[in-house]
Write a protein that binds this DNA or RNA. Structure first.
Lengths: 238, 238
DNA sequence: ACCTGAACACCGTTCAAGT
DNA sequence: ACCTGAACACCGTTCAAGT
């Protein structure tokens, strides 16, 4: 329906054959633009100027599309991680890992839907295994036993890939302040601790450009706390 | 279709009027028994011996059902947390918080689907706010500034409610070992770090009754690491 | 080999009609 | 007031048919 200024349409070849690659790239683009909710087989096909059923020649089913999305995103993560400038893990494993995790995070911030689909995949894809092997490698070079490295992966959880899912995250940065204020109003007497906390937080950030919580700051704070805790256990064990 | 040995059916009153309460309790039961995937309006109605459309007189829509599920589960969490025996937060905030978080965890382990729906609700329900106010109260009594308490909530994330979503969790405890072994086989050369780690982990747990990872052990390890890190920052600030 | 149209079995939800 | 049947607009997916 809506014509897109895609490379394929500009070159006036009416038939660029479909392929798994093209399907997945279209899926990423669709999710980036309209969100995960509007990624349906029918809309994905429409995006490619094709009938929904044609997709099944290149992709087993919708689940396989999600698997493919994970592949694409983790590919980007690996590329970003490999380009990162960081201290050598033998000298400073915390710095080495920290830099890589923050690089991974930047990729995921470009694809806001990615955490949700990563969480939904329980079986480790090859790309995921490759990434985790990389992380364990760093830890080993930093002096971790296999056992402690294993534990470290559990402690980091999704943070190893650069994201955390927050339980309480008001929608947009703009509405955050308004919501926080409205909430404080309603609950000042019943929930004094939270109300005090919110009042303090809003006060600390008077322009409110960041919204109530600066995700990046909180992410790094938590990451550093965890890296420090892991280092203490590593040092204690050696 | 399938008659259930429900209290309502045993008492031979053919008509127990529907209510929001009954709808939500049936929803919890259905999710517990058959998983979140089979919680549809039609099946939920069937569970209650009623037509799907009748539900809409007691619940705005399916989203409201999920909101209700959160309410019910957080109600159970609050009840469990209030019964917990723990040191007073003034004397030992780590012990006080730790005991409550582990109590919350026990509730969520009884409702395996609960983490997924908690994650999907971004707006804080009243029950959620009440729980978080409780946690912040503990931290305050333990000597935290509002600011550090705020940070602590972010670091804890979903762990404050007793769960973490693991990225890499093979399905059942039984299959975990087999999968791990099969994977080691396949990837010993390409992913030496992970392979070594898995070999070590399997070796540490020779009976394998726990599967590859003991979730409870890992949860407590991570929780203690985080609590310790928070205490260090609290002590440094005061 | 690749794409399609019609169809099937499911969703959530609306609406007018029943009691 | 509470429940229902039929219908609508969507899903993912199958299958036989087209080129």
């Amino acid at each position: 329906m809506t014509p897109r200024a895609d490379a394929d349409e500009l070159t006036e070849q009416p038939r660029v054959p479909l392929s798994r690659r093209r399907v997945l790239r279209a899926a990423v683009g669709l999710a980036d633009r309209d969100g995960l909710g509007s990624l349906t087989m029918r809309r994905l096909a429409q995006e490619l100027g094709v009938e929904a059923m044609s997709l099944y020649h290149h992709v087993a089913n919708k689940d396989a599309v999600f698997d493919g999305l994970v592949e694409v995103i983790l590919g980007e993560v690996m590329a970003a991680v490999e380009e990162v400038e960081a201290p050598s893990p033998e000298k400073d494993w915390q710095g080495a890992l920290r830099a890589r995790i923050l690089a991974a995070r930047e990729v995921l911030l470009r694809h806001r839907w990615a955490p949700r689909v990563l969480e939904s995949r329980t079986t480790g894809s090859p790309a995921f295994i490759a990434y985790m092997d990389h992380v364990v490698g760093l830890l080993r070079e930093g002096g971790f036993s296999f056992d402690l490295a294993h534990r470290a992966l559990h402690v980091l959880g999704s943070r190893a890939l650069g994201f955390t899912q927050e339980l309480f995250r008001p929608d947009g940065a703009q509405t955050a302040d308004a919501e926080a204020a409205a909430m404080m109003e309603r609950m000042a007497d019943r929930y004094p601790n939270l109300a005090g906390m919110l009042a303090d937080a809003v006060h600390d950030d008077p322009d409110g450009t960041l919204g109530f919580c600066d995700d990046q700051f909180e992410f790094e704070f938590a990451l550093d706390l965890i890296l420090e805790g892991l280092e203490r256990r590593r040092a204690a064990a050696s």
